[in-house]
Design a protein around this nucleic acid. Structure first.
Lengths: 229, 229
DNA sequence: ACAAATTTAGACAGTCTTGTCTAAATCGTC
DNA sequence: GACGATTTAGACAAGACTGTCTAAATTTGT
């Protein structure tokens, strides 16, 4: 791969704009080529910036890489928490509302550019930077999963679901909702919206078969008639 | 990383032994360092072989990489099909038997060395070798998933499960059973056996809450008394 | 034990890459 | 429009890596 670039390269204006463009472009190149394969000249060309500017901003390749991961983690986390805030705490149509939530999570956090890049960088270079990715683990899954679990717990407490362990339920919810996208994720592809919807719909249906209140009509609840039909 | 190696390097004897050792070692190095970062000298040293021997056997770095992926795909597939053959077609204890199957699948196919390596190589270099990984997709998921789905279909036909779409159920089964291992997989780690068991147990329980026959006592079933306990 | 095949160590050319340096050009701001 | 800060292009040294070549050493089969 030669660092060739369309001649009419976009050239970002302003100090911050350049910093942004560099980190952004670098994310893409690190993903495509891996850390070792990523070429600073190529990043510079794609970012519309001279190589020296990259060194001015970030010092060296490794520091640039760290900046990229920090940046992605931060943006992804923000997106996830914003989406968690849309969790249906008082659903009118539980199935539809959970499918909507799953869709938002997938489209805004997991399948979007940042999510895709972060996932790939973690998978690819995670072992090489233990402390950096330990940080990601704490800031990412370590904070978002309990937040989702808390929402499911509230839903259970509100009588909408029949859940024993909210943490397990949260992880299984995500596993179910993405069950049909695994192969696509593996190869770094982006699933089409209909595929995401399909997987989310099937996943939520199964989730509700397992955890939905099964006798919304029966008033004799709780300890008594645990076995039902 | 310098190509340093313990001085008393194991030196494989025989033509085939060398070929094996090269492909095997290369798998590990490609995983650790990525394709671009993998160093032929390092592979040679770790394999206990001279660099020239690698070129004699495989021509160049790219051909070596292809050989590695082919090798891993083949071995993994063999393992998966062998494990699918242990699927509980006539379970005595459905929950325990499915947990056992999930454990075998995880331990022998997904968490073992080959599975870990193949997964990482696909994630890391998949986009760079579209046709190679298209081949993997056909030979791997394209063949194993339907095989698992067929087993679930048989279980449903036998009255053990209440499944509409066996393909969806199969994918969801895998998603559930691995739900709690995702973070570990992400970072390339190998989960401890108790973690695998925990995830499998929780996953199978949820799976059965969703798809298990819920009235094993009611005799007015389907064709006759297909439902058992 | 001998002949053929294979493997080895090391040198080597060619290429690529990182990171530094410099002088000129450009930009933002007053 | 002018000044200070930033950016640019390009050259450059140092090092790393791939893939080839050679002659010697080792292994294998008979």
């Amino acid at each position: 791969m030669r660092p060739s670039v369309s001649p009419d390269t976009f050239r970002p204006r302003g100090h911050e704009a350049k910093r942004l463009s560099i980190v952004d472009t670098a994310a893409g190149v690190f993903c495509r080529e891996g850390f070792a394969g990523a070429n600073i000249d190529l990043i510079a060309a794609e970012a519309g910036v001279s190589r020296q500017t990259i060194y001015n901003h970030h010092g060296d390749k490794e520091k640039l890489f760290v900046a990229v991961v920090r940046d992605l983690t931060e943006r992804c986390n923000a997106g996830i928490f914003a989406t968690i805030d849309t969790f249906p705490d008082q659903p009118s149509d539980l199935e539809a509302d959970l499918i909507g939530f799953a869709m938002r999570l997938n489209q805004n956090c997991i399948c979007n550019r940042d999510g895709k890049f972060l996932r790939k960088l973690i998978q690819t270079e995670g072992e090489r930077y233990p402390e950096l990715f330990a940080e990601w683990r704490e800031q990412g899954p370590g904070r978002t999963w309990p937040a989702i679990a808390a929402r499911f717990a509230r839903l259970a407490y509100g009588g909408y679901l029949d859940i024993e362990d909210p943490d397990v339920a949260a992880r299984q919810f995500l596993g179910l909702v993405n069950a049909e996208l695994q192969t696509i994720f593996m190869l770094g592809g982006t699933p089409r919206e209909e595929e995401v919807l399909q997987s989310a719909t099937n996943g939520v249906r199964t989730f509700l078969r397992a955890f939905g209140k099964r006798r919304p009509l029966a008033p004799i609840e709780k300890q008594s008639a645990l076995a039902s039909a």
